[in-house]
């Protein structure tokens, strides 16, 4: 179990992560979703012992991972910059991981290198953005670490490479279940793979729940302006737009059967909101978090 308690990360006057508390059960695929600069990487850096929190704590099975030999060996954190010596060859980096990672799967690594058409003799500094990301994915998956953290691992990958990444990740997870945390803002592409989503915005936790539950949270209500307003009163409104006398509001929170009937009999039409739209609304700049609660 991974437990974050009041986790806060500050850089000088900026607060990147603000008092986040969340528990993540082992063995699931999590999506850490947030816009750029929402604090995803800072949070993951603490989780993977790359930095200390400013306050609060992270524990994995009850222990702090920071400078913890046993825990750090079992955490792989692939961040977009790829922590490697630029002058080294890709193969050298893979060899190093192969020696250091207790569960390294050389066969899988070779297969992924072929899938992504990586040249192990190439120097890391000479790889394209997409190839760097692919190398990160090879390391992240072949390490087969009990806690695998992939931070925007798809940057620069084309659609085909991203699909290959998702496919290989799922395939390996099915054979070797472990905790995987994917940070992304391309939710649409990965939503089906995620068991739970954790959404943060401006350093704060917005949502942590089962992906399927989250998916059914949004509903768009359309109809005559006054009727819509009356129905929406007291509910969490994520977005609204009007055209003439017609208004559409996006509500957060699933409606039960009674509420649906009530809306329909009032002449309102209800339509589901896609998961990507729901995320965009929840984290849009003009929204305040409290309104979503």
């Amino acid at each position: 179990m991974i437990s974050l308690r009041d986790l806060t990360v500050r850089y000088g006057a900026t607060t990147a992560v603000e008092s986040i508390s969340v528990d993540l059960a082992p063995g699931k695929i999590y999506g850490l979703l947030g816009r750029n600069g929402s604090g995803k990487t800072s949070l993951l850096s603490v989780l993977s012992a790359y930095r200390k929190p400013s306050s609060g704590s992270v524990t994995i099975d009850g222990s702090d991972p920071f400078e913890n030999r046993a825990l750090m060996r079992d955490i792989v954190f692939v961040r977009d910059a790829l922590d490697a010596v630029e002058g080294d060859r890709a193969g050298t980096l893979l060899d190093l991981h192969a020696r250091m990672r207790p569960c390294w799967d050389a066969e899988l690594a070779a297969k992924l290198v072929a899938t992504f058409e990586l040249d192990p003799r190439k120097r890391i500094g000479a790889l394209s953005r997409g190839q760097r990301s692919s190398l990160g994915v090879v390391i992240g998956l072949a390490s087969r670490a009990p806690l695998t953290i992939l931070d925007e691992a798809y940057l620069g990958m084309d659609a085909a490479a991203r699909m290959a990444f998702y496919r290989e990740m799922l395939a390996d997870y099915l054979e070797h279940p472990r905790t995987i945390i994917l940070s992304t803002h391309l939710i649409q592409e990965v939503a089906d793979l995620l068991e739970e989503v954790v959404i943060i915005d401006r350093g704060r936790l917005v949502v942590h729940e089962d992906t399927d539950t989250f998916r059914s949270r949004g509903v768009a209500v359309t109809g005559a302006a006054e009727t819509v307003d009356a129905f929406a009163a007291g509910r969490a409104v994520l977005a609204e737009q009007s055209l003439g006398g017609t208004r559409q509001v996006t509500l957060y929170g699933a409606l039960d059967a009674d509420e649906r009937r009530q809306a329909e009999s009032a002449g309102l039409s209800l339509s589901p909101v896609g998961i990507q739209d729901l995320f965009v609304h929840l984290t849009s700049p003009e929204r305040t978090l409290e309104a979503a609660r």
Binding site: Q188, D212, R215, S216, P272, I275
Partner: peptide, 8 residues
């Protein structure tokens, strides 16, 4: 699958 109702 569409993403408008629970996949299960």
């Amino acid at each position: 699958f569409d993403d408008r109702s629970p996949i299960y």
